[in-house]
Computed example of a mutant assay.
Amino acid sequence: MKFSIGGSLKLAFRPWVEGIENVPAEGPAILASNHLSFSDSFFLPAVLDRKVTFIAKSEYFTSPGIKGKLTAAFFKGVGQLPVDRSGARGAGEAAIKSGIEVLERGELFGIYPEGTRSPDGRLYRGKPGGLARVALATGAPVIPVAMIDTEKVQPPGKVVPKMIRPGIRIGKPLDFTRYQGMEGDRFILRSVTDEVMYEIMKLSGQEYVDIYATAAKRQLAEAAKAAEAQKKAEADAGKSAGKPADTGKAEAAGA
Rank of each mutant, 00 (worst) to 15 (best):
A25H: 10
D120N: 09
I143E: 05
K217V: 03
H35T: 05
V78Y: 10
G242K: 14
A216Y: 07
I200Y: 04
L174T: 05
G92I: 02
A221M: 04
T247K: 14
N22W: 05
P119Q: 05
K217C: 00
G242R: 15
K152L: 13
D185G: 06
S58A: 15
D84R: 11
K162V: 10
G99L: 08
T214D: 13
A91S: 11
A233P: 07
V196N: 00
S63D: 15
A88Y: 14
M182Y: 03
P15S: 00
G106L: 03
S118I: 10
S58F: 13
D194A: 11
K249S: 12
A32W: 05
E18P: 08
K127C: 05
K127D: 02
K232W: 03
T214W: 13
F187A: 15
P166A: 06
S191G: 13
K249W: 12
P161K: 06
Q206M: 12
G110D: 06
K239W: 07
G139V: 03
R117T: 08
A229G: 03
Q219W: 11
L81G: 07
P173L: 07
S8H: 07
I200P: 03
E93A: 13
P82V: 02
L36H: 09
G254F: 14
G99Y: 07
V52T: 08
G121K: 03
E101M: 12
Q180F: 07
Q219A: 15
L174S: 00
L31E: 05
I111R: 08
Q230P: 09
P128N: 06
S191V: 07
Y179I: 13
Y198N: 12
S204R: 06
F61R: 06
G110Y: 01
L44N: 10
R89H: 08
E59H: 11
P113D: 10
V209M: 10
L103H: 01
A223W: 09
A32F: 04
A32L: 02
A91P: 07
S63N: 14
A250D: 13
D149E: 15
F38C: 08
A137F: 01
F54K: 01
K243E: 12
V196C: 00
S39Y: 15
A233D: 08
G77F: 07
I5R: 04
R122W: 03
